[in-house]
Design a protein around this nucleic acid. Structure first.
Lengths: 144, 144
DNA sequence: GTCAGTGCAAAGATTTTGCACTTTG
DNA sequence: CAAAGTGCAAAATCTTTGCACTGAC
C-alpha cells in the first residue's frame, strides 16, 4: 500500500521504530469510519490474516496514544477504550443510544470556550473529550 | 441523617424500593466533590462500617443510572466508570493530566449547539459527555 | 406472600505485565 | 550489537451473573 510510507514517516518523527504491525494498525485506524477498540483492531488484523498478539495491539495503541498519533476515547456507555488516528481535523461523535451507531461530527464548538476556561482556571488545557448521545432517526421510528 | 428522607422520595418516584443501601449510596454521591467509581463508593461504605457487597454496589449504581437519579461518566484516561448524582445543575469536569485532580465546572457551553445539531442530524439528542483535560497550575510548575 | 433486593462465589471482559525471543536501526 | 518490539501465558482490574436467601411493600 502506497500510503504506508506516510505511516513510516509518522513513526520516525515520533522516534518510534518502524514495524509492520504499527503501520498496519495506523492504516486500519486511518481508514475506519468510527473509532475502534483494541479488540476490534485485533479482529480486523486477524481478518486480514495478519498474525499478531492482542497484547501487542494494546502496547502499540498505548505508545501511539502517548506519541499523539492516535487518540484514546471513552465513549458514553461503552466500557472499553476506543482509538482513532489523530486527524488534523478534530472531530466528535454522535452516538445512538438505540443501535449504538456512531456518527462523526466534524465541527467542534469548544475552541472558544477552552480559551476562556484557560484564563479562568489557569489550567494549561490540552484537549477535551466530547460525545453527544441520543436517538438516531431510525431508532426514533422503531419506538413509535 | 435528615436528608435521607429526600432520597427515599427520589427512590419512590422512580418506583424503586427504599433500602438503606440505596439511600446510603445516594447520600455518598450527593456529598462527593467529584464523581466516584463503584469501587470508591464501596470503599466509602466500608469506611463507614457499612457492610455491603461490591456487586450490590454495581447493581444499585446501575439501577440508579437507569432511573436517571445518577449519571455514569467515562472520564478520559480512566478505564472505569464514574458516578455522580444527577444534580439539577448540569456540570462538566476539568481533569488534570498530571495529578488526576478533578475540578467541577458548572457552566455548560453546549446547549445551543445541541439544538443546532438536532436540526441538522434529526437525532433526538438526549445528552452529552464532556470532559476537558490539561495541566493544573501546580503540575505546570512541577514541570518547570 | 410476592417480588425486588442482596450476598456470595464464580465467570466474563478488558487491560496489563514478566520473561524469553526477535527485529529494527 | 543494543535497544526496542513482540508473543505467550498469566495476572490484575473492573464488571456482570446465577442462585439461594432476605427484606420491603
Amino acid at each position: 500500500m502506497e500510503r504506508n510510507s506516510t505511516y513510516k514517516d509518522s513513526l520516525k518523527q515520533s522516534s518510534l521504530k518502524n514495524t509492520k504491525h504499527r503501520c498496519e494498525i495506523l492504516n486500519i485506524l486511518d481508514h475506519s469510519e468510527s473509532p475502534l477498540s483494541a479488540g476490534e483492531v485485533y479482529k480486523k488484523l486477524s481478518d486480514m490474516n495478519i498474525k499478531i498478539n492482542l497484547s501487542t495491539v494494546y502496547r502499540i495503541l498505548e505508545v501511539l496514544t502517548e506519541k499523539k498519533l492516535v487518540n484514546r476515547l471513552n465513549i458514553v456507555g461503552d466500557k472499553k477504550a476506543l482509538y482513532e488516528t489523530n486527524k488534523t481535523t478534530h472531530r466528535h461523535y454522535l452516538v445512538c443510544t438505540g443501535c449504538k451507531m456512531i456518527l462523526p461530527i466534524n465541527y467542534c464548538p469548544l475552541s472558544l470556550y477552552e480559551a476562556e476556561l484557560e484564563k479562568k482556571t489557569n489550567f494549561k488545557i490540552e484537549g477535551h473529550n466530547l460525545d453527544i448521545y441520543g436517538l438516531c432517526p431510525d431508532c426514533q421510528n422503531k419506538i413509535l
